[in-house]
């Protein structure tokens, strides 16, 4: 009886889509995120200017009809660089969220299913990881294993693990005492099977919302690491890397720093709006409070 009672988001995909697209926050976030993703995809086949064959005579040009966002110290078109940089920023944040979910969610579900000392030990260990300022640790990891996009992914991903473990555990803990889970247990299903069949579909929505938030944080973290010179290395570029290059030339050419920063702000804003909208749509109980 309680399946529909406890899992409102799962049934009626059409209803969900309708609800989502009447939510202003979701629509704005969705449009922004889609545009940024599209921009990154388009950059694989086309950019307004060639950024590999450089024309050094064009260096540090201000905004013009030809170069909408100006050019950098190598004469590369900033708009083209932002499009290409989007790939890296998105890829790093995306894989980092994947690492966090892939390891954190099973851990959290396991802790909730087993309870007892396993749960206690896992959650205490989580607390320890939370006590490390994430950015500092990410800096340590990238500095130790060498700067680069891959190590940045790992560094950011590691600190997503306890976040997802905590969210998954909290969601799963609330579901285990429910009647339909009890019924499944009574019929002899194993904890693993129950987790896959009943727990995961019902916590998928909160994981999705958390995923969007961590994605936004991942973009910011990647930017921070690259800004310190620890993330993407040339010839690769990312928005943070562009700010790193811009920093010493800001006095003469502020446009070098303005546009990559704006790209970060718009993307993170879009993702946060998307996350807020999703949460409102998936959890109507919370909407009343907001």
């Amino acid at each position: 009886m309680s399946a529909e009672q406890t899992s409102p988001p799962v049934e009626g995909a059409g209803q969900f889509v309708r609800a989502a697209f009447s939510n202003a926050s979701f629509v704005t976030g969705f449009v922004i995120t889609a545009l940024i993703a599209l921009m990154a995809l388009v950059s694989f086949v086309w950019t307004p200017h060639d950024v590999i064959n450089l024309t050094v005579a064009n260096r540090m040009q201000p905004i013009s009809a030809q170069h909408w966002f100006g050019t950098d110290h190598f004469g590369r078109d900033i708009l083209s660089l932002i499009m290409i940089g989007a790939r890296n920023s998105i890829a790093v944040a995306f894989v980092a969220v994947g690492i966090g979910m892939g390891i954190g969610v099973p851990l959290g579900c396991w802790a909730a299913a087993r309870g007892g000392w396993i749960d206690e030990a896992l959650m205490r260990f989580n607390d320890v990881v939370f006590a490390f300022p994430a950015l500092l640790s990410a800096i340590m990891i990238t500095a130790i294993f060498g700067p680069g996009a891959v190590n940045a992914i790992v560094a950011i991903g590691i600190f997503n693990i306890p976040v997802f473990a905590r969210v998954a555990r909290a969601g799963a803990m609330a579901l285990w005492p429910r009647e339909y889970v009890l019924a499944a247990r009574a019929s002899g299903k194993s904890a693993t099977l129950i987790t896959i069949e009943h727990i995961l579909p019902n916590i998928a929505s909160i994981l999705l919302v958390q995923g969007t938030i961590q994605f936004a944080l991942g973009i910011l973290a990647e930017a921070g690491l690259s800004y310190l010179g620890l993330g993407a290395q040339p010839p690769m570029t990312s928005w943070g890397r562009m700010l790193f290059d811009a920093q010493t030339r800001m006095m003469v050419a502020p446009h070098l720093a303005i546009f990559p920063g704006l790209a970060i702000v718009v993307t993170v804003l879009g993702l946060n709006l998307l996350g807020d909208g999703l949460r409102d749509v998936l959890d109507p109980r919370l909407r009343r409070q907001r």
Binding site: L243, M250, A257, G261, L273
Partner: peptide
């Protein structure tokens, strides 16, 4: 506030330097 959350503090710092110091 929604915009503020999305601003990386170091980028904001660069803008502040440009406006108030330079």
């Amino acid at each position: 506030a929604q915009v503020g959350v999305a601003i990386p503090n170091f980028w904001f710092a660069l803008l502040l330097i440009y406006v108030f110091a330079v």
